[in-house]
Amino acid sequence: MFDLIFTHFNYAVVIVLMMVGLYVIFATQNLIKKLVGLSVFQTSVFLLYITIGKVSGGQPPILVESHGGDHALLSEPVLVASAAPVATHSGAYGPEVLYSNPLPHVLILTAIVVGVATLAIGLALVVRIREVYSTIEKDEIDALDYHFNLEGIDG
């Protein structure tokens, strides 16, 4: 049980960050702070994916060329673990090198950009809410909504 701390520490940190973001989303009444909490939550999910794709002793998934060139500095071969035959690459690009998994990187690249798009929409909504209600605190908005609903549309 105790050795789990050393082999699975990334999940523990990601869960702590995720719960902090979730708490900010739930507890705070300020809409901009809520969006900050959302982005903290989002980034912790990115961290979860990227840590799963990490291969220990691996390199960034940029293929190493064998014949000098731009990537000559990278061409020192990393010792390949015998337990990971699937992770090796031995092609035209050079000696056997252990790479990290590129697939989570691709997924998260897309997610980061889409996350900023949703953040922009959310902030635009906050600005509009501020224009109408003169506040961005959710409890005050709720109180105003309650009041207007009591009065009815015709007053």
């Binding site: 799963i52 990490k54 220990s56 990971a84």
Partner: peptide, 12 residues
């Protein structure tokens, strides 16, 4: 979950 840095985890 697979251990951190495991090369043979299903995801990798």
């Amino acid at each position: 979950m697979p251990a951190f840095g495991a090369a043979n985890s299903p995801a990798n």
